[in-house]
């Protein structure tokens, strides 16, 4: 019997390593350990083995069975591995470039806007939005702009026809005309009319001026304005905010300065300069970056806030201008051409 077992095992040790396909393996397996297999036949002979020899014979059979199983397992593992590697093509060349476009890029105006909003959110400002088509009241009247102010002139501001009807832009007075907002300050008015102080908002958005397009002017551009209304807001607080914004954006050594100026909706009013020597392509010690001031009491009166009780500040600047300073871009038109070579530079 031992010789028979040895013979079967020897045969299997030759045959099984030569099997390459799963059906062949199944067939081979059947030939050895199937119901009519050779090995099964030997096991059946156990019944004929005298009782005293059975333990030894059983040991022999078990040993042989283990070896046979190992051969089968080995063959199965080899075939399974071959099947998997058959699913692969030839090895890749990892040095070839990916053919897909991308990665996607955020527009530099988005990057600058989001960075400013992030800085402002950390000091309690939330981001507000409002319509780009506005009525004269929200864009001018409520902001203390006199009826004959040049900014209202058809030469400088885009108007819609007198019979234009806007379903979701409210007017104060039915006789008012619709226009394309000239600043995002109208968002401040709408925000103040909607709720009570304290208010701390930043309103970035698109604004329109009837200007010739050139390297520094564009028919539409973007602004970002901050409004803070609370008790006991001071000029010093306003200066602190601007110092904070620009230090966070450009580094802690960045300095700002105020120059007195005039805006109808703030009193006192200032223009803000930035110490700019570390910015690209700037060769002046100070560069104008925006306008600001303490909210004029007449604006509070227009939105129904008690000017005796509430104080506030407002600050606004052009986003294109900021992006141009930050990145050293010298022509505003690049922002609106969307040349991919431009867009890819900032992401």
């Amino acid at each position: 019997m031992q010789a028979q077992l040895q013979a079967v095992l020897a045969k299997a040790a030759v045959e099984l390593p030569a099997v390459h396909l799963r059906p062949e393996l199944e067939a081979a397996k059947a030939r050895y350990v199937g119901p009519n297999g050779e090995f099964t036949a030997l096991m059946k002979q156990m019944g004929a083995v005298p009782k005293e020899e059975r333990p030894a014979a059983g040991r022999l059979i078990n040993e042989a069975k283990g070896r046979l199983q190992a051969l089968l397992d080995e063959a199965l593992a080899r075939i399974a591995a071959a099947e998997l590697s058959a699913q692969l093509g030839p090895a890749i060349d990892p040095t070839l470039p990916a053919p897909d476009p991308g990665p996607g890029t955020r527009h530099p105006l988005t990057l600058v806007r989001e960075e400013m909003c992030r800085i402002l959110r950390k000091v309690g400002f939330s981001v507000a939005d409002g319509p780009e088509v506005e009525s004269e009241y929200y864009c001018f009247d409520a902001l203390n702009t006199p009826a004959d102010h040049p900014a209202r002139d058809e030469k400088d501001t885009f108007y819609l026809p007198a019979d234009a009807r806007f379903g979701n832009v409210s007017k104060k007075d039915p006789a008012e005309r619709y226009l394309l907002r000239t600043h995002t300050s109208s968002v401040q008015i709408r925000t103040m009319l909607r709720g009570e102080p304290p208010i701390r908002i930043v309103s970035p958005g698109r604004v329109y001026r009837r200007d010739t397009t050139d390297a520094t002017h564009s028919a539409n551009f973007h602004q970002l304005e901050c409004l803070y209304v609370d008790r006991n807001v001071t000029v010093r607080d306003l200066k602190a905010l601007l110092d904070h914004i620009f230090a966070a954006l450009l580094g802690k050594d960045t300095r700002t300065r105020f120059r007195p100026h005039y805006f109808g909706y703030t009193e006192p009013s200032f223009e803000v300069d930035l110490a700019a020597t570390h910015l690209p392509r700037v060769n002046k010690p100070w560069i104008e970056i925006g306008g600001c001031g303490m909210v004029d009491p007449s604006v509070f009166a227009a939105v129904g806030y008690d000017p005796e009780r509430w104080t506030g500040y407002a600050f606004g600047m052009g986003l294109e201008r900021l992006a141009m300073l930050l990145y050293g871009i010298d022509d505003i038109r690049y922002f609106y051409q969307n040349d991919a070579r431009f867009l890819r530079q900032f992401a």
């Binding site: 981001v127 507000a128 904070h244």
Partner: peptide, 23 residues
Amino acid sequence: GTERIPAATVVAPGLAAEDDPIV
């Protein structure tokens, strides 16, 4: 002189409102 406005730190509330849904 507006150049003499003293420096200060920003005093901010602990809770900021939600951004506008449009944003």
